[in-house]
Amino acid sequence: MALTKADMAERLFEEVGLNKREAKELVESFFEEIRAALEDGTSVKLSGFGNFDLRDKSERPGRNPKTGEEIPISARRVVTFRPGQKLKSRVEAYAGSSEQ
């Protein structure tokens, strides 16, 4: 089972002592403020976790995989995530199972 907003709100209720409604709003607000910053063109740097950066991609040739028809992929701005050193080393140690 994947971690969801409901699981995060539950943790805030248990560990921070927010009531259920506050916890739910805080989780919502956390992701919304990150989205809003990125929408404004501002990258987000969360030390210990990682950075959300923006990249401007120019138009490039693409292909409809079904028909084989050539269609250009328009220029666009995309979000990339660069995990921080601390998160990388915590994850690296993971031995693996059938979860992923």
């Binding site: 921070v16 956390f30 990150i34 998160l87 993971y94 992923q100």
Partner: peptide, 25 residues
Amino acid sequence: LAVKTLLEHMSESLATGQRIEIRGF
């Protein structure tokens, strides 16, 4: 404390091989 707890919860989840799914994010 809440923001730090959220980030720790997310890191902990990935460190134990559990994915995170946030609709719209």
